[in-house]
Nucleic acid binder design. Structure first.
Length: 506
RNA sequence: GCGCCGCUAGCUCAAUUGGCAGAGCAGCAGACUCUUAAUCUGCGGGUUCGGGGUUCAAGUCCCUGGCGGCGCACCA
């Protein structure tokens, strides 16, 4: 029932603005054992003995009576020190020894104050560690966006909505994993360092492997590796992991993002449509408790049937351009320019088709829908439709103008696969830097025999952002990529700027 | 990459036309036995993002650099 070791000035507070000298400051403690959580204590009947550890978020001294709030992973509970229980000297000493932001262990009994707040009447108090810096304002919190991203720990500590958003992210991923495991999917891990960046149309990051003396790519997709696992007989697999794309960043794109991909042998894209819809509804029921959500003020109804929209039919309806007729780059470019769209470089037919769709169709796809049958040029790893080889057995789930899911029946014919990747190589040589790279190892695996299958990818960050009404993907990632801070405090900006430009090759 | 906006105490924000850089919270010292953004008295706290310029005088005006947000462009 006492503060044990103490010394006048804690080293962590030397030279920090918070304090000069203070009585009864203890050093860091170890071995404190708590047996209760704040949330459980709040529910316990009066008289229940509790033993808690957490961070002090509020500390009000009123002479012989002190109120504070102790926060742990479950939430907050009020604690109090009373002269009646502890005596004048003890209250004085303990109340002066605690600062907002310090970690404390307390033991005592639950009671209810006159104003009805559940409170721990403290009989033991141990300061477990000090804060050397002041926490953000208890009322205003921390609203500076840059500070919230760079020092996320403070955002989590003082902004309840931020903490709740990340708790929801965790529950969503847990629910997804449970759903897949309940359906016999096996979770696997494939490499992030890859010899060839494939599985998507995107520019990769390059990194250096010192021991092998080679450059590697950070994966842009796990697709071809997961298919190789299926060749090996794991015929329902999934991976939740990071992909890296060296491209623009905005509220719906991150360079480093979390992707779920799964592959199921003997399924086709229609099987995946039904399955992913069931999964999304299950997650909504589990985590949100509703099949309707509000994003940015717009109601999104996942419970209603999801309309099926044919890619080329919809493009034709909105633009008058029939992609079944307009089949080559110069003709398409002429028609797209005729619409008044800026086509930019548009180095390939597929790229221009994609641009046309993204400009004219996708922004209007707000309610959940299936977008079916991409033109065959767009995805070199997908199976062509039997009924029409110029289109794919593919679909996307589009919500809020965002592509959330992309899936197709997989191409499993090694001869056609080689031919279609050769076409990619030709486009690359013609200047398109987002084509897929040839992977001989992948073709070889396919030559050993690949079962008919359908795979699916879902952007976890976008899905979480939708379900938590987050305006930007950066709000659902703990530490979003930020420009470095080196050089921010450089004494001479001009020379330092030149020096850092010269050294960026490293 | 382009455009607009922002950057002042640990946090949230003020500062008139260019005229002594302030408040609340937090911190320190003190009062106070039911607080709820507690209240009251006193005290300390600044590279106003960095560098340069104009001026008797710059947080404020000009140039330049940094970082961030938003929009556009790019981007499955």
């Amino acid at each position: 029932m006492a503060l044990t070791v103490r010394f006048r000035t804690h080293p962590a507070r030397e030279g920090v603005t918070m304090s000069t000298e203070q009585p009864g400051v203890t050093g860091p403690q170890s071995g404190y054992r708590a047996d209760s959580l704040a949330a459980a204590a709040r529910q316990a009947p009066d008289g229940t003995a509790v033993r808690l550890a957490g961070r002090i978020m509020l500390w009000r001294r009123m002479g012989g009576l002190v109120f504070g709030h102790l926060q742990d992973r479950s939430g907050r509970v009020q604690v109090s020190l009373s002269r009646n229980d502890l005596g004048e000297e003890t209250v004085k000493e303990w109340s002066r020894s605690v600062k907002i932001g310090d970690f404390a262990g307390v033991a005592g009994q639950m009671y209810t104050t006159r104003k009805g707040e559940r409170t721990v009447a403290v009989s033991e108090l141990t300061v477990l560690n000090r804060t050397a810096r002041a926490l953000p304002d208890k009322w205003a919190g921390m609203s500076n966006v840059e500070a919230r991203y760079r020092r996320r720990y403070l955002d989590l500590l003082v902004n309840a909505e931020s903490r709740e958003r990340f708790e929801t992210r965790i529950r969503i991923i847990r629910s997804i994993r449970r759903f897949l495991e309940d359906n016999d999917f096996l979770e696997v891990e494939t490499p992030i360092l890859q010899e060839a960046a494939s599985g998507a149309a995107a520019r990769p990051f390059v990194t250096r492997h010192n021991t092998l003396g080679e450059d590697f790519y950070l994966r842009i997709s796990p697709e071809t590796l997961l298919k190789r696992v299926v060749v090996g007989g794991f015929d329902r697999v999934f991976e939740i992991g990071r992909n890296f794309r060296n491209e623009g960043m905005d509220s719906s794109h991150l360079q480093e993002f979390t992707m779920l991909e799964w592959y199921a042998a003997y399924w086709d894209y229609r099987d995946n449509m039904a399955f992913v819809r069931e999964m999304i509804i299950t997650v909504l029921d589990d985590v949100i408790g509703s099949r309707t959500i509000t994003y940015g003020g717009t109601k999104l109804d996942f419970g209603a049937s999801w309309p099926e929209v044919d890619y080329r039919t919809e493009v034709a309806r909105r633009t008058g351009i029939d992609l079944r007729v307009v089949r080559d780059l110069p003709a398409l470019r002429e028609r797209v320019v005729g619409l008044g769209l800026d086509v930019g470089a548009a180095p390939s037919y597929a790229g221009l088709v994609d641009l046309l769709y993204k400009k004219t169709v996708r922004p209007d796809l707000i309610q959940p829908c299936f977008l079916l049958h991409h033109p065959a040029e767009l995805v070199p790893l997908a199976r062509r439709s039997d009924s029409d080889p110029t289109q794919l057995d593919s679909f996307q789930v589009v919500v809020n103008g965002w592509e959330i899911v992309k899936a197709y029946s997989e191409l499993i014919d090694p001869v056609e696969q080689r031919q279609r990747l050769d076409e990619q190589t030709a486009l690359r040589e013609a200047g398109d830097d987002e084509t897929m790279m040839m992977e001989e190892d992948f073709i070889e695996a396919m030559e050993y025999g690949m079962p008919p299958m359908s795979g699916l990818g879902i952007g976890i960050d976008r899905f979480v952002a939708l379900l938590t009404d987050a305006p930007t993907l950066r709000d659902v990632v703990l530490f979003p990529t930020m420009r470095g801070t080196k050089g921010q405090t450089a004494g001479d900006a001009s020379t330092d700027g030149i020096a850092s430009t010269d050294s960026t090759a490293s």
